[in-house]
Design a binder for these strands. Structure first.
Lengths: 243, 243
DNA sequence: ATTGACCGATTGTCCGACAATATGTCAATA
DNA sequence: TATTGACATATTGTCGGACAATCGGTCAAT
């Protein structure tokens, strides 16, 4: 190698990305608050000194992240990124990385018992009632595979929501998209309805009586059941999950 | 209400979003594999029957999610979404949701001990060596706040990486971006270097000797120290984290 | 109070154009 | 032979202008 100079590689960022970053910064720095209307496309384009086409590409970049949306199908507005929207990006990334059932289950073992524990301290009376209503439905649907799966999914979502912890909700979003749906196959194969209902009841009662240890413990047992179910049904615990 | 008909609200998706979804589906369904080159913009535009401008907007949508990138600044190529790229979206979403330090800490309490446990079973010899090297550096930097913070961050990242669990890595990405950086303020305020190094040593040795319980326990103690540090330094445990 | 007609503003989409850059070929040269 | 230079080609990034569809508001007619 002729050691002549070694210049820094100059990074020529395309304009649409620069513009996108400027807007993103204005939003995350609080300069633009949630709900604020943005100027029209033509106006924005003028401000940045680019064409509307270029500006629109910048907008798309932000739109995907949920940072901006449409107020009424016309004007652009600063929006709060929704958990499920971000969650879908994460899930599709995991799909491409061929994340296995085991990997998701391991994360679930960390987050779901934690959610149950935190729900004890933070669940409102309203949330507790809805949780119990969900359990009632699951008891009646104990032999209806499809209905039971929906109850199961809703149960875990409600427990997580009752923690009032947005970081936790975001972290477990991929479980919703990838893990529990696949659990449906187990339900169809093994009909473990009774076992699910019992576990849910223990978690529910622990939350109602504000007993974090009990809630976490039964959620953990519940997740262990999941794993055994997958193994017994021979669904490939080490296989990548499918979308 | 005049119960006349009750039509379904028709959702008129803009073309750029439809095109984007089509491409996304082709990718996640495996029709297009990672590393595949996409046709040129003009060609794609023809295939979908839209203009290049519209197609480009669709591309931007995917580009942000890390699903496609540029091979050599020209041709488009299907890429694997990087953990940190997706993680940044999640982090900026959390910032906007004003996630508190407590919320992040609660998630960390669920994930970090889990990571330590899993690292025991899955860490390669190489990874163990690098972990020990990191600990050596942290011991020497025990009074250098900046260097210690970097070691601290790297330590937790290496432990997480040693789990070889991509779902876990993705779930804890926001901790990297939001939680540990703020921890720097604690280090500067309290100089808890010695305490950090001791905790790291216990985790490290537990991993080296393949003792999951011990690894998880010490990581948990370590995280408890975090919380107390934040409280003692009066940094506002219940305050939203800042970017 | 509802309906209908109208207008301006704004977005979604299209078309055509050009400069800058990367790729490939081929000849000239040391 | 390996490097350089010259040239043609392909592709992206950006531009400017254009138009239909639709939303919001106003105002008159019913």
């Amino acid at each position: 190698m002729s050691r002549a100079q070694n210049f820094a590689k100059l990074d020529h960022q395309p304009a649409y990305r620069v513009v996108s970053e400027k807007i993103r910064h204005a939003i995350t720095s609080g300069e633009l608050a949630t709900g604020d209307l943005l100027p029209t496309e033509t106006e924005l384009a003028e401000q940045f000194g680019v064409t509307r086409s270029t500006l629109r590409e910048a907008i798309r970049l932000l739109e995907h992240g949920g940072l901006i949306g449409r107020a009424d199908r016309k004007r652009l507005v600063v929006t709060l990124p929704q958990t499920d929207q971000i969650g879908r990006s994460v899930s599709s990334a995991m799909l491409m990385h061929k994340v296995t059932f085991r990997e998701l289950w391991e994360v679930a073992m960390g987050l779901e018992p934690l959610a149950a524990r935190l729900a004890c301290a933070n669940a409102s009376d309203q949330e507790k009632r809805e949780l119990r209503a969900n359990w009632q439905r699951s008891r009646e649907a104990v032999d209806d595979h499809q209905a039971l799966l929906e109850c199961e999914l809703e149960f875990h979502n409600r427990v997580a929501a009752a923690t009032h912890n947005h970081a936790l909700l975001q972290a477990r979003a991929p479980l919703n998209d990838l893990f529990y749906p696949a659990w449906g196959a187990v339900i169809r194969a093994l009909s473990p309805g009774e076992r699910i209902v019992v576990a849910h009841r223990h978690v529910l009662e622990a939350i109602e009586s504000n007993n974090p240890d009990q809630a976490g413990l039964w959620m953990q047992k519940h997740m262990e059941d999941f794993r055994r179910g997958i193994e017994i049904a021979e669904l490939g615990f080490e296989q990548p999950v499918t979308g």
